[in-house]
Design a protein around this nucleic acid. Structure first.
Lengths: 192, 192
DNA sequence: GTCTATATCTAGATAGAC
DNA sequence: GTCTATCTAGATATAGAC
């Protein structure tokens, strides 16, 4: 064997990592297999030693993306509402809007996910539900938990769709401010 | 002249209309010029009699989309907060989630807009700001206006990205409920 | 495992006939 | 205006050498 036993897995991981970034920056459909392989120093033909098709890569990629985001957002048991507030601040940051390649997959690939097969969408659904349940437990409000998620994704989509830097910051700031108020209102209501 | 003077303009309008629907359903990049032309009964070569490039069509298409959405959402002078509530109900409806081809361009094409040139993004920005200003005037809250827009777009992205019908309805319902509360709270605050 | 070469298809765009 | 034919480039995927 000319390659170590771990080499294939390592290559697969590098390809997956690199593909995640490229897809979130430039879209998945619009990036060719050759370009994805070139990003890890290989040629297009080698791709099919790792994935049976480009769609299979998309599925694996979304699974990793959602697992990673869920880990960050849902957090660990025992954390309270402060964790949610911290997530919101980071998600709705200017840095996140400007760096889709290292950010959440949903604002960048949401539309492509919507067009994907039911397996991909099921993965996304389960991941979202886990974060929603976690946030619902911490805020005491099921609806609020979904609304926070939607607000995050929508604000990022809008922030990235506008041209002006000022408007981008306004959108993100308004969302942060609005959600902070909503969380504070919920907290007050529960303390009564 | 073998064609009436209005024929070219009519064809352009049919092409634009058809392209808007196809792009919102299947994505713009991933649909070929041939397919777009076939949808209005023509062949690919005829496209370039109407637009100099595929990107030029995207720009025209987004301009029409944003003008249309802004007309619906910003509404007319003299309307009050009820108009905003009506918009939210319609935007966050199950029908909207299930029919991207006749819905808002932002949840469907937001990521492609983000990757487009500055001209496209400027058009989007101006349109969004017009709706935001309109809603800010009616609700008396600049931040709330942006937050409502972001919530709408995000909820549609999430609703379309999940597999299960129940979860889809939950996301939309939670957003509607949450925003209704936020509007009511703002109203109360202003009446004090 | 990864290469090169290739098969097959489709893309965006142009040229010239009508 | 729209057609057909074509150019060039890129896509996904496969085959066989190494």
């Amino acid at each position: 064997m000319r390659y170590s036993t771990s080499h294939k897995e390592e290559t697969r991981q590098r390809l997956l990592q690199s593909s995640r970034e490229i897809a979130k920056r430039g879209g998945f459909d619009s990036t060719g297999v050759d370009a994805l392989m070139a990003s890890v120093g290989l040629t297009g033909g080698a791709f099919y030693g790792h994935f049976p098709s480009k769609q299979a890569l998309f599925q694996a990629l979304i699974e990793e993306e959602m697992a990673h985001s869920t880990e960050l957002l849902a957090g660990e048991a025992g954390q309270d509402e402060d964790h949610v507030e911290k997530c919101l601040r980071q998600y709705l940051s200017h840095a996140h809007a400007q760096h889709p390649e290292s950010g959440c997959a949903l604002p960048a690939l949401g539309a492509e996910i919507a067009r994907a097969g039911s397996e991909v969408r099921s993965v996304v659904e389960q991941a979202l539900k886990r974060t929603q349940k976690s946030w619902a437990g911490r805020t005491g409000d099921e609806d609020l938990a979904w609304a926070l998620l939607a607000q995050c994704v929508g604000a990022l989509v809008l922030a990235r769709a506008v041209e002006g830097e000022r408007t981008r910051k306004q959108i993100l700031g308004s969302s942060r401010h609005f959600l902070a108020q909503a969380l504070a209102a919920g907290k007050t209501a529960r303390e009564d």
